[in-house]
Design a protein around this nucleic acid. Structure first.
Lengths: 264, 264
DNA sequence: TCACATTTGTCCGTATGTATC
DNA sequence: AGATACATACGGACAAATGTG
């Protein structure tokens, strides 16, 4: 592996450009976001302007923007006043990667449920330690809102999912929020394919209400056992549904068969 | 918003193509991977071949490949026998997103440490429930390897990080593995900037050894308390280091200032 | 050892659809 | 309704990298 000729020194000099151009452009923009120079809501220059400013081609800029888009830093807006817009949807990105990972690693519903039970119980303990009144108020508001929805025979599944995220937020530890958001993305993906089911929503709201009351009453064991039963029941529901569902479709990932495909 | 002229009916017909072309190409390839038609190690056709097969331009194919690359499904190989190669690095992808999220959400070391303590304790309890002999053997091998490294005055920080991933694997729940891998990516990122420190490695190996022995001896409380102290101490170390470090550099994200930059 | 073929990386020019004013 | 500005997409071209004969 030692070069006796052409390549002079592999140790003295490092290659001038190790990364690809679009990666450098991507990192430059990322740095400005991390520094706070660019904040969510700000607009980036158009592709053409970026290309001239970075002195690269438009294709290179586009690939850089593609990276930023998929990693949750920007979103593209079409039309006259459009352009790349700074956003912050990194949590969505992580959630989507979880969906991919669950498919690739063939994780089962039961595995997900078991982990979810343990993780949410852990978070609930943290809530008992570190939450403040305002956090419990948020939970109460969520329950009230979901309650009014089901009373009007409307689906409250978004609100019910959100309850668990609010629980994580009440722990005052954002790491828990990230973990919870990721798991909820998977749960929501399965649940959304289940369709509208009022009974499920009603049951969930009732459980959530009990949990909030137990938290307010500082009833640790009560809250924990209600939460555990709630999650286990929910897991059974998802499993039963998937048993009926499997075979019909080959799982998620938007299906669009418009292109003639022949790979390798 | 009611169209009295041109557009006939907004409810009868849905737009033929809602997504962008490169997203459809990306999803088509993703489906083949999920179905198992394409497996890690397989090679995709060249960009030009893909373009003709999907009947789109090469630019569109490239943007699709960019998506697949950043989400951990393929990696690009340059040169004659190169091309897009199917891989499975989704966990890396999630870990990198965690790094982004930690920067954006300004998560502190203490927050990370607190969460890590709780999560690893939860996982250790699962290990006591569900692990098998083979899993404990893996932990022992890891400790033995790290031990021999530090005896030769070599850094064992990779092995020591890996110990915690093996612990998650011993829980027999892959959800825990994903969560652990994500958190370890952040820990490793900070730790790698700390540089070589033999004492830290020695201390870590000693703790890991005690934990494995406690697991083998079914000493639940012992294992939990050693693990907790180990992680808390490690958290202190990272915090002290970052205190010295901050101000010198503006955090991570590879810095390359070769392009003249002026944004907005 | 060296030339060659293949493939990615990058650039330029152009056309089209779309959202805003 | 028309003009404008932007992303999207196409085609052709060359340079750089890398394994192969």
């Amino acid at each position: 592996m030692d070069s006796t000729s052409a390549k002079p020194s592999q140790t003295l000099f490092a290659p001038v450009r190790t990364k690809r151009a679009f990666e450098e452009v991507c990192n430059e923009i990322k740095r400005l976001i991390f520094r706070g120079v660019l904040k969510p809501g700000d607009k980036l220059p158009s592709e053409i302007d970026l290309a001239t400013q970075f002195s690269v081609s438009r294709q290179t800029v586009r690939e850089a923007l593609r990276l930023l888009e998929i990693t949750g830093f920007i979103s593209m807006q079409k039309g006259g006043t459009g352009g790349p817009l700074i956003v912050d949807t990194i949590l969505n990105t992580i959630g989507n990667s979880y969906l991919d990972a669950f498919q690739m690693k063939k994780i089962t519903i039961d595995e997900l449920t078991t982990a979810r039970v343990e993780i949410e119980k852990m978070i609930l303990k943290a809530v008992f330690r570190d939450s403040q009144d305002i956090d419990v108020q948020c939970l109460e508001e969520n329950v009230a809102q979901a309650k009014s929805l089901v009373e009007r025979k409307t689906d409250a599944f978004r609100e019910n999912i959100h309850f668990h995220l609010l629980l994580a937020m009440a722990s005052k530890n954002y790491v828990f929020v990230i973990v919870m958001e990721s798991i909820l993305t998977v749960v929501a993906d399965i649940r959304s394919r289940l369709g509208f089911d009022l009974d499920v929503s009603v049951e969930a709201v009732r459980d959530h209400e009990k949990i909030v009351e137990a938290i307010k009453g500082k009833d640790h064991q009560g809250a924990l056992s209600i939460l555990e039963r709630h999650l286990v029941e929910n897991g059974k529901l998802l499993r039963e549904f998937l048993k009926r569902y499997e075979g019909e479709e080959e799982s998620s990932s938007s299906r669009v068969g418009v292109f003639p495909l022949r790979v390798v």
